[in-house]
Design a protein around this nucleic acid. Structure first.
Length: 522
RNA sequence: GUACCUAUAGCUCAGUUGGAUAGAGCAUUGGUUUGCGGAACCAAAGGUCGGAGGUUCGAGUCCUCUUGGGUACACCA
C-alpha cells in the first residue's frame, strides 16, 4: 500500500476521536492533525495534578538496573576529573528512575590493589611524622598529598607509638583499612556536597576475601575458557621496549567479541586487576541485576571489550553490561588551560570546583553536553558571565513564575493553589496554548532521553520551555492585556496563573532529574 | 599498525529507533521600558551537515571508502 493511501485510511479513523479537530493528508503521506483546545487544557490539568511526577514513565517496567559510577580509588579526594562521571552517573540514575526502572547507584571501592598499599605506606610515613619523626620528602611512587597528614595524626592520636618499628607486614593491613576508610568518608562528604548519594558501596577486598575470584577462575576453567600461554607483542607505539614473552593465564575473550585474549594472572601467578573485576560484575548479577551500566572515563576505553566478553561468559549471556564513557573536560581559566599536577600542588579537587562555582551550576553545566563529547569548562566564564550558563536562563524562568504567583496571591488575597484549582482553562488563548503544547512534550522527552541514556537532552528541552515562557512574559511588556495577572479580571488571571504553574511544574520535574533546586528568587 | 569516539553557522553545541523548509546560545547588525523581575524579548544575517560513493519514495541520521581531530591498546587500575 502506498504511504498516501495508508494515510487516507488512518485519517478517517482519527476523525472519530473527539479530541481530533481536523486532519489532512500532505506530501508523501504525512498526516497533519489539529487537536482541540480541550485536549490541550486537559494536558495542563494533568500536569498540575501530577506535579513533579509529571513525565514519570512505566517504560522500565520496574526492571532492576545497576548504575556504577565514580568508583574512584580511595587514595585521596575526588579531583575535577571525577566530576563529570559523578554528575552524569547520578543524573542518569534519576532519569532511569523517572522512566520506571528500579535503579541502584553503586560505588566500587578498590581497596585491595596496589594503590591502597601505596596509600597505606604513605599514611604510615605521615603517622611517623605526626609522632615527631623527620620523614623528609615523600618518596616517588607514594602519595605526597597533605590530606594524609590527618590520617597519620588520627592514628597517632588513637594508637600512640604502637606501630613504630614494626614490620610492614604487620602494620600494612591496619593502615590500609584505616586510611581507605577515612578517604571514603572524605569522598562521601564531597559527593554529598554535589547532591550525590549512593545506595551501595561494594568493597573489592570483601569480594576477594569471600573467595569469589577463585570461583570465577574455576568456572572459566571448567568452561574451557582459560589457557596458559604467551600473548603477542602489542602493536602500540609506546609498548614495544620492555616487552618480553612470558607465560600467563589467559582468558579466551576473543570468543566473545574481544580483539585479543586477556590475561587473568600475571607471569608471577598473581591476579591482574581484571580478574577480581569479573568476580565483582558476577556479584552484581547474583544480586539480581541483569542490566548493568558502568560510567567510566574515556581513558578506560580499552577495558570495555574485555569486560563485556567476561560478563557474557560468566552469566552465559543472561546479563547485559553497557559502558558509558565520559570524555575529558577541558578546564580553562580565561582561556588559559588549568594544569593539574598532584606534585606541583595545582591539583584542583571536586570540592574546590563545587565551592567556587556552586553545586547547581556545576551539575547543570556538565549535563548540557553529551557525555561522550569533549567539554570545555572555563571557570571565569561559568562564574562571571552568568548569561553563558543555561542554568540561569532556566532558573530565571522559574523565579519569574514564582514572582507571578506571589503577585497573584497579593492581588486577590487568596492562596495560589486555590486560585489555580478554580481556574477555567478554556479562557487560555492561542499563544498560551502553544506553551502548553510545549509542556506536553515532557513525558516523551523523558522516555527518549532514558532510552538513549542521554540526560543532556532534557537540558535542551528545559531551555526551550524557559524560552517559550520568557517569550510569553515579554508580550505583557508591549501589551498590558497580555500580562498574567490583571486585577480587574480575576477569572482570566486564574487561567493564566494555572499556565504559569504548569511551566514551573515541568521545570521542577526536569531540574529534579538533574539534582538541581529550582529558584524562587534570584 | 588496530579498535572505539568525533566532524553540523565565525565560535560552542543540539538535532526524536531515517520524514516535510537542518535548530539554539555566544559573537555581529537593528529594534523593544510611563506598568507582572531587561539575568528578558523581537528581528536580520550567517549552512555544498568534513569529502566521495551507496541503500531508500525520502539520509545530518544507515552502509562502504576517504580526510582531519580525540582516546585507548600484555606483565598498572
Amino acid at each position: 500500500m502506498k504511504p498516501r493511501d495508508l494515510a487516507e485510511l488512518l485519517t478517517s479513523r482519527l476523525q472519530e476521536n473527539p479530541f481530533v479537530e481536523t486532519t489532512q493528508v500532505a506530501g508523501a503521506g504525512f498526516i497533519n492533525m489539529r487537536l482541540s483546545e480541550k485536549f490541550w487544557t486537559h494536558q495542563l490539568e494533568t500536569i498540575l495534578k501530577e506535579g513533579v511526577h509529571y513525565g514519570d514513565s512505566t517504560m522500565g517496567g520496574g526492571e532492576k538496573v545497576n548504575v556504577e559510577f565514580t568508583s574512584a580509588n580511595p587514595t585521596g579526594p575526588l579531583h575535577v576529573g571525577h566530576s563529570r562521571g559523578a554528575v552524569f552517573g547520578d543524573a542518569l540514575s534519576s532519569l532511569l528512575q523517572k522512566a520506571g526502572y528500579d535503579v541502584t547507584r553503586e560505588y566500587y571501592i578498590n581497596d585491595a590493589g596496589a594503590q591502597v598499599a601505596k596509600l597505606a605506606r604513605s599514611a604510615y610515613l605521615r603517622y611517623l611524622e605526626a609522632l615527631g619523626q623527620k620523614i623528609g620528602e615523600i618518596p616517588a611512587g607514594l602519595y605526597p598529598g597533605e590530606y594524609l597528614k590527618e590520617v597519620g595524626a588520627f592514628i597517632a592520636q588513637k594508637d600512640g607509638d604502637k606501630w613504630v618499628g614494626v614490620g610492614e607486614e604487620e602494620y600494612l593491613p591496619y593502615f590500609k583499612k584505616t586510611a581507605a576508610d577515612l578517604m571514603m568518608e572524605m569522598i562521601k562528604k564531597d559527593l554529598a556536597q554535589a547532591n550525590i548519594h549512593f545506595d551501595v558501596f561494594s568493597s573489592e577486598k570483601a569480594i576477594a576475601d569471600s573467595g569469589a575470584v577463585e570461583k570465577v577462575m574455576d568456572f572459566l576453567d571448567k568452561e574451557g575458557l582459560i589457557y596458559k600461554g604467551v600473548l603477542e607483542k602489542p602493536k602500540g607505539a609506546k609498548a614495544a621496549d620492555d616487552w618480553e614473552p612470558k607465560e600467563m593465564t589467559i582468558f579466551k575473550s576473543t570468543l566473545f567479541g574481544d580483539e585479543v585474549d586477556r590475561p587473568l594472572c600475571r607471569s608471577d601467578g598473581s591476579y591482574t586487576y581484571f580478574t577480581p573485576d569479573i568476580a565483582y560484575q558476577l556479584d552484581k548479577y547474583k544480586r539480581g541485576f541483569k542490566k548493568l551500566i558502568m560510567v567510566l572515563g574515556a581513558d578506560h576505553a580499552g577495558y570495555v571489550a574485555r569486560m563485556k566478553a567476561a560478563v557474557k561468559a560468566v552469566t552465559k549471556g543472561d546479563a547485559q553490561i553497557d559502558f558509558l564513557l565520559c570524555q575529558m573536560i577541558n578546564f580553562t581559566e580565561n582561556g588559559q588551560p588549568v594544569k593539574m599536577s598532584k606534585r606541583a600542588g595545582t591539583f584542583v579537587t571536586f570540592k574546590d570546583l563545587l565551592d567556587e562555582v556552586g553545586t547547581d551550576v556545576v551539575r547543570f553545566y556538565l549535563l548540557t553536553r553529551k557525555q561522550d563529547s569533549q567539554l570545555d569548562f572555563d571557570f571565569a566564564k561559568v562564574k562571571e558571565q552568568s548569561k553563558d550558563n543555561p542554568v540561569f536562563y532556566v532558573q530565571y524562568a522559574h523565579a519569574r513564575g514564582a514572582s507571578v504567583k506571589r503577585l497573584a496571591e497579593e492581588t486577590f488575597g487568596k492562596k495560589a493553589d486555590e486560585l489555580i484549582s478554580s481556574a477555567d482553562l478554556s479562557l487560555l488563548q492561542e499563544d498560551e496554548l502553544a506553551v502548553v503544547r510545549q509542556l506536553a512534550l515532557w513525558p516523551r522527552q523523558v522516555e527518549m532521553a532514558a532510552a538513549a541514556n542521554e540526560p543532556h537532552r532534557l537540558a535542551y528541552f528545559l531551555n526551550d520551555v524557559a524560552a517559550a515562557f520568557h517569550g510569553l512574559w515579554n508580550r505583557g511588556r508591549e501589551d498590558v492585556s497580555k500580562r498574567f495577572i490583571e486585577a480587574k479580571d480575576e477569572e482570566l488571571s486564574k487561567a493564566r496563573l494555572a499556565l504559569v504553574a504548569g511551566v514551573m511544574t515541568v521545570i521542577e520535574s526536569g531540574l529534579a532529574v538533574f539534582g538541581v533546586a529550582p529558584a524562587e528568587e534570584m
